[in-house]
Design a binder for these strands. Sequence first.
DNA 1: GCCAACGTTGGC
DNA 2: GCCAACGTTGGC
Length: 139
Amino acid sequence: MRYWLFKSETSTWSWEQQVAKGEAGEEWDGVRNYQARNFMREMSLGDRGFFYLSQKDKKIVGIVEVCAEAHPDSTTDDDRWDCVDIKAIEPLPKHVTLDQIKTEPKLAEMVLVKNSRLSVQPVTEAEWALICAMGGLGG
DNA sequence: GCCAACGTTGGC
DNA sequence: GCCAACGTTGGC
């Protein structure tokens, strides 16, 4: 299984909206960036991801799972753009802020730190485990 | 609200 | 195929 990070803004698509979609999940549409699209094409059913809020919040608030692999983005006729579907799994008991991530030396190489503008990013297994622990999940 | 960083576009 | 101009993103 691989790990990812999905970036959103509360004003565009909130964690609450994602949770409201339940098991069915929702298309992660609107991505118009080749790098981000390519990562989505690499995703497999069951891959997990962080749900990160940019701009005002700047923190990871929950865990999502890929529930449909890459398919054409229904919000455009342009066949260059694909997207996956994701569903909410659980919220992080403690939100992990960008500030915390930047303060943790072990996370200095995260794409979130290195290339903050990329809206869909890969996360390493080590980064995943550490952030889950920081967020009060698992053991 | 500003601006730096980055990606995309289009003229040559 | 290069590169300047432009638009967008997102942290501050």
